[in-house]
Simulated assay, not measured.
Amino acid sequence: MPALEADATFGFDPYAIADARLSPAARAALARLQQTLDRDVRPLLADAWESATMPDAVLDALVPLELMQPEGVDAVEAGSSMFSGFRNYVLARTDVSVATLYNAQSGLFRTAVALGGSPAQAADLDPGIRSFALRGAFALTEPAHGSDIAGGLATTARRTGDGWVLDGRKKWIGGAAASDVLVVFARDVDDDAVKAFLMPTDAAGVRLEQVTGKVSLRPMQNALITLDAVTVPEASRLQRVNGWRDVARILRAMRSDVAWIAAGLQAGALDAAVRYTREREQFDRPIGGFQLVQEKLARMLGNTVASLALVVQLSARQDAGEYADENSALAKMQTARLARETASLGREVLGGNGILLEHDAARFFADAEAVYSYEGTHEINALIVGRALTGASAFL
Rank of each mutant, 00 (worst) to 15 (best):
A99Q: 05
A99Y: 12
A99F: 14
T100L: 12
Y102D: 00
Y102R: 04
N103D: 02
N103R: 13
A104C: 07
Q105V: 00
Q105F: 08
S106I: 00
S106Q: 11
S106R: 09
G107W: 11
G107C: 14
L108T: 00
L108W: 10
L108F: 14
L108I: 00
F109K: 11
R110H: 11
R110M: 11
T111I: 02
V113L: 10
V113I: 15
V113S: 04
V113A: 12
V113G: 12
V113Y: 11
A114F: 03
L115H: 11
L115Q: 15
G117S: 02
G117K: 05
P119L: 08
A120E: 14
A120Q: 14
Q121V: 14
Q121T: 15
A122I: 10
D124E: 15
D124M: 14
L125F: 12
D126R: 15
D126K: 14
D126N: 13
P127E: 01
P127N: 10
I129M: 07
I129S: 07
I129G: 06
I129D: 02
F132K: 09
F132N: 09
L134V: 05
G136F: 12
G136I: 04
G136R: 08
A137P: 06
A137R: 12
F138A: 04
F138P: 02
A139I: 06
L140F: 13
L140W: 09
T141S: 06
E142G: 00
P143H: 05
P143N: 09
P143V: 06
P143C: 12
P143F: 08
A144Y: 11
H145F: 02
H145E: 07
H145N: 04
S147W: 10
S147H: 07
S147N: 11
D148S: 13
D148W: 13
I149R: 07
A150D: 14
A150Y: 07
G151R: 05
G151T: 14
G151H: 04
G151P: 04
G152R: 03
G152K: 03
L153P: 04
L153C: 00
L153H: 04
A154P: 05
T156Y: 03
T156G: 04
R158T: 15
R159A: 15
R159W: 02
T160R: 06
T160Q: 13
G161E: 05
D162L: 12
G163A: 08
G163E: 08
G163N: 04
G163C: 03
W164I: 02
W164V: 04
W164M: 09
V165A: 15
L166Y: 02
D167I: 03
G168T: 10
R169N: 07
R169C: 10
K170I: 02
K170L: 02
K171S: 05
W172Q: 08
W172C: 01
